[in-house]
Amino acid sequence: MKERKGLIIGSVILIIIFIGMLIKGEPSKNIMVWIAAILTLSIYSFLYRDNIFYKFAEHLFVGVSVGYSVSVVYQNAFIRRVFDPLFITRTYIVEGQFHILPFLAVVIPTLIGLLMVSVFTKRQAWLIRIPIAFVVGSYAGMSISPSFQANIFEQTRSTLHIALSISSFIMIFGVITTLVYFFFSKEHKGFLGRTANVGIWFIMIAFGASFGYTVMARISLLIGRMNFLLYDWLGVIK
């Protein structure tokens, strides 16, 4: 009951402030800005608790975003990569001659992709494993070398960028103890345990630092939204 009362008082105050702003400021005359502003407030309302405004905004957002991504994918995958080359630009016909390779380059992935739909049948549902196997295999093979290059080689090389200084010592010490923390096949006790413990300290300090580093960037996002509400919508600040 007490909570109710607080809520009502709070809402009344907010509405009064809001009306005051509407009168004092120069509210936007663009209907889309009004819609965007109301949706913004609806989303933030969930910070208090689940409510009809949030539910409305959430379902709208999901619906719009699916519709949007389907449109984009439909265009990138089907129109650009299948329909156009097969029927419009006809990449497989060069100087009146039919070439099998460019033709297969479009037809094979289309057929593999079609196997996705096999999941709707009861008996041939296993065929979906073929496109899955294809995609997972490709990316597994693709990720190995760049990840070696960027993570193992680049990180080892940068660690070895040393000078006779305390910083270099801390760097090497930190990298090694962190790596020791990720030892799985030995129990973390004795010397190994102590080293791994230092490793987790390093990890925690690093996480804290990167947390602190991000805070301001996140707050500036909020300032951006507040700016939209107060400047673009209500026109209170200029």
Binding site: E58, F61, V62, S65, V66, V73
Partner: peptide
């Protein structure tokens, strides 16, 4: 749900 980062988060 959806293939949109924040749409997914909202959902």
């Amino acid at each position: 749900l959806t293939q949109d980062q924040f749409g997914f988060a909202a959902g």
